[in-house]
């Protein structure tokens, strides 16, 4: 009984179905574990964790530089910016805006620098449903390759104050 103390030696090897189940469960746990390194080797969706410390002011300055150099127009009042294919792109989350609107080419690979300048924000690319965090003080580099052209929405999915639900940005792929 689980409510009474145990007398004598209760050490005992598992038997029968219990033993088999422990074996199966252990094997399954190893599969669970190995899938992650496996995907790093053979899968396409991984996060390397490439990160640099950066002060919010420095990051903002870099974003502004990037916008000035690569601006191709406007999108609802936010600069529309087309980074060079294969080059660096910058995206900044702040209350309550994603800045700027990026214009990318399908099939090209970009180094997307993601950060926040005030508090934490959540980068959630819809309708794809890819999610990353933007944390002030950290320049998070995601090497991404857009697949299908279209207009995507960036939702903020970390609570960032009363305007949080309105923090919706765009990302355009051609």
């Amino acid at each position: 009984m689980s409510l009474e103390s145990l007398k004598g030696n209760w050490l005992q090897a598992p038997k029968g179905a219990e033993k088999v189940w422990i074996g199966i469960a252990l094997a399954w746990c190893l599969v669970l574990f190995l899938m992650m390194p496996y995907w790093h080797l053979f899968g396409q969706q991984n996060t390397s964790g490439e990160t640099y410390r950066v002060s919010p002011e420095a990051f903002e300055a870099r974003v502004n530089e990037f916008v000035e150099a690569n601006r191709v127009g406007d999108h609802n009042g936010v600069p529309l910016v087309e980074p060079p294919p294969g080059g660096d792109a910058f995206l900044l989350g702040r209350m309550w805006q994603w800045y700027p609107v990026l214009k990318l080419r399908a099939g090209e690979t970009y180094r997307l620098h993601l950060s926040a300048t005030d508090i934490q924000h959540g980068f959630s690319l819809q309708p794809l449903n890819m999610n990353f965090r933007a944390i002030p003080g950290y320049d998070y580099v995601l090497t991404i390759t857009p697949k299908e052209p279209g207009e995507y929405t960036i939702v903020c999915n970390e609570f960032c104050g009363v305007g949080h639900h309105m923090m919706v940005g765009k990302l355009i792929v051609e």
């Binding site: 746990c29 669970l32 574990f33 964790g49 993601l114 950290y138 998070y140």
Partner: peptide, 27 residues
Amino acid sequence: VEPGMSSTWKIWNTSYVMYLAVLASMV
């Protein structure tokens, strides 16, 4: 999905060191 930690660190830790705690729950 956040900056700062290496994948090795993430894999090792998130798997509870190879899912041995998950094993316990399955037991």
